[in-house]
Computed example of a mutant assay.
Amino acid sequence: MATITFENISKAYGTNQVLQNLSLVVEDGECFTLLGPSGCGKTVLLRLLAGFEVPDSGRILIDDTVVADPAKHIDIQPDQRGLGVVFQDYAVWPHMTVFENIAYPLKFKKLDRETVRSQVMNVVDLVNLTGLEQRLPSQLSGGQQQRVALARALVAKPTLMLLDEPLNNLDANLREEMRFEIKELQKKLGITIMYVTHDQEIALAISDRLAIMNVDGAIQQIGTPWEIYEKSANETVFKFMGLANFIPIRYEQGQHLVGNGSQLLEWQTLPQASGKFGCRPSDIILAKQGNGLRGKIVRASFLGAIMDYMIEIDGITLRTEVSTNKALQNNLMFAESEDCVVNFSDLLWFPESANSARG
């Protein structure tokens, strides 16, 4: 296992400043995900850690070993950093068998043939490729090729695994299957994993902690999947972590009004300020009558297991989903243009210029 420390890392390409004074610690034995939009610098940070590129300034440590420090001209080569890397495009050799692909990193360790075979077959079994070791990559599915790439990264027994969007080229079912397999591998081996992705579902499923990066390469929030999803630090994080609804609130003459209308919020704990509430589709409670905000269904879509509704409240549109069974059982089947009543199970308050807090 390994602890990773980034200290004030900066990296630019010409006039394009990708990372600036970024600091981050990944704890020993955790699965840590860098999550952010394309071009935010997350892959650059991974490449700096791998040793494929050198930071302009700052230090990178693996455990207590400084592996990169341009001020002191330290740049330990990638093959001496004790890590395995899996790329998005698998990068398996098409002319080599599964066994030969996996064994490739061991060629440089001067091991005897039996030791090589033993280590290769151990990881073949670990990634569920038993019986396929003599096949060529062209005879494998995408998921099997990805397992070959994982096995090749694991065979040299690294203390640290770097995964750069490794599931992007798989279909939805295989992505779901492989993300759970990666998490199980990490648990079995107890190694540190640093994972790069822009896919929120994968990040939430496999991470012990994750860091959200914005388009400028700055870290917006670090936390557990639950903390990031339920306690988003700001609107950027909240928007990025899934379907987000926002409800603008006007504070006028001591009253809170919704959107551009005249409906009042008379909740006791509201701050005396304007701002907006954020909520997920699952936070919205629909009804046909009773107390709550008055709205109108502007779109009703039957999607099999769920009913997807678009609601309009005083010029604001919100998305919510109700399971079809629940909708049928609880008189929640709405038609377009039908009136509705809206309440909320949970809301996240975003002041106009302050940190967020639960409302």
Rank of each mutant, 00 (worst) to 15 (best):
I191D: 01
I193P: 00
I193Q: 05
Y195G: 03
Y195F: 14
Y195L: 00
V196Y: 04
V196D: 01
V196L: 03
Q200V: 12
I202M: 01
I202L: 03
I202V: 15
A203D: 02
A203C: 01
L204I: 10
A205V: 04
R209A: 04
R209V: 06
L210N: 00
A211V: 01
I212S: 02
M213S: 05
M213L: 15
D216N: 11
D216S: 15
G217V: 00
A218M: 09
A218R: 15
P225K: 08
P225A: 04
P225L: 06
E227I: 03
I228G: 06
Y229I: 12
Y229N: 15
Y229G: 08
E230F: 09
E230C: 09
A233M: 06
A233W: 08
N234A: 06
E235N: 15
K239G: 12
F240V: 02
F240C: 06
F240H: 08
G242L: 01
L243A: 11
L243Q: 14
N245Q: 09
N245E: 10
N245L: 07
F246V: 11
I247C: 08
I249N: 05
Q253K: 15
G254R: 05
Q255T: 13
H256E: 00
L257P: 00
L257F: 15
L257H: 15
L257T: 14
L257S: 09
V258R: 06
G259P: 04
N260F: 14
G261T: 12
S262F: 12
S262G: 10
L264W: 06
L265K: 12
L265R: 15
W267Q: 13
P271A: 12
A273L: 08
A273D: 11
G275I: 02
G275T: 02
G278F: 07
G278P: 04
C279V: 11
C279M: 12
R280S: 11
P281L: 10
S282Y: 13
S282G: 06
D283W: 08
I284A: 10
I284E: 07
I285S: 10
L286C: 10
K288P: 02
K288C: 05
Q289F: 05
Q289T: 14
G290W: 04
G290C: 04
G292R: 04
L293P: 03
R294Y: 03
G295V: 02
I297P: 02
I297W: 01
V298K: 12
R299D: 11
A300V: 08
A300S: 13
S301C: 12
S301E: 14
F302K: 13
L303T: 09
L303R: 14
A305C: 01
A305N: 13
A305Q: 11
I306H: 14
I306W: 12
I306C: 05
M307E: 15
M307P: 01
M307G: 09
M307R: 14
D308Y: 08
D308R: 10
Y309E: 02
Y309N: 05
M310C: 10
M310H: 15
